[in-house]
Amino acid sequence: MKNGTLFFLGLFASLTVSFAVVLLANHQLGALTPYFDDGEGKAFPDRMPGVAARGQLVYRDLGCASCHTQQVRRPGFGADQTRGWGERQSVARDYIFQPFPQLGAMRIGPDLTNSAGRKPSALDAEDLMNLLYAGQGAMPAHAFLFNQVKVTGEVPAKALKLTGSAAPAAGYAIVPSEQAQTLVAYLLNLNTVYDYPESRPVVQAAAQAEGAHK
């Protein structure tokens, strides 16, 4: 490699060409629009309500994605469906309104893509608050998202209903901070209950191949 200029151009070109992967993908996905369903008379996915969008920032800032993914793989590839994480695979269109998609890369805890749309029963706000406050199994307690307040008069409406050793001292109540409230609002907004055309055929084909458990 005697020719320095040629060497330099080679380096430059190599990386530029590899960036074509990104550009091609962007060509394919960058202009995805919401899907308008004539039957329902509205477009999907929904935009996140403001409080949930703020909750996503809390989710990102705390690093929740270090343990939880938000991507359900197709039926037959892993046990994502049978674990109840989502009835269909995640598709790119699910994320178009998310400023910071939290796909994640580790499953130390369950996938949360469809945590609010899970069947038969998804966790409600109260369950999520208690889970965040006390932790469970490998999930650490996030007590720092809650404040202990002295009860004067009526118990605050948002106070957690705790029993046993988790309960605060008499005369005190545990109330969620704003961070906890937005985070829970975000988690309650996570669902992929709507089937897009691109997510449908794969589900059906794979379900038939497996002998359709429905």
Partner: peptide, 30 residues
């Protein structure tokens, strides 16, 4: 030479003019 190339393009496409949705995961992987 290649690190600044990578780093500046990643900054541009992830943070300055962020690409949409899952494209961010594609860029981050790259």
């Amino acid at each position: 030479f290649l690190f600044p190339w990578l780093f500046s393009v990643a900054q541009l496409t992830l943070f300055v003019l962020p690409m949409r949705g899952v494209m961010q995961a594609v860029i981050a992987g790259w």
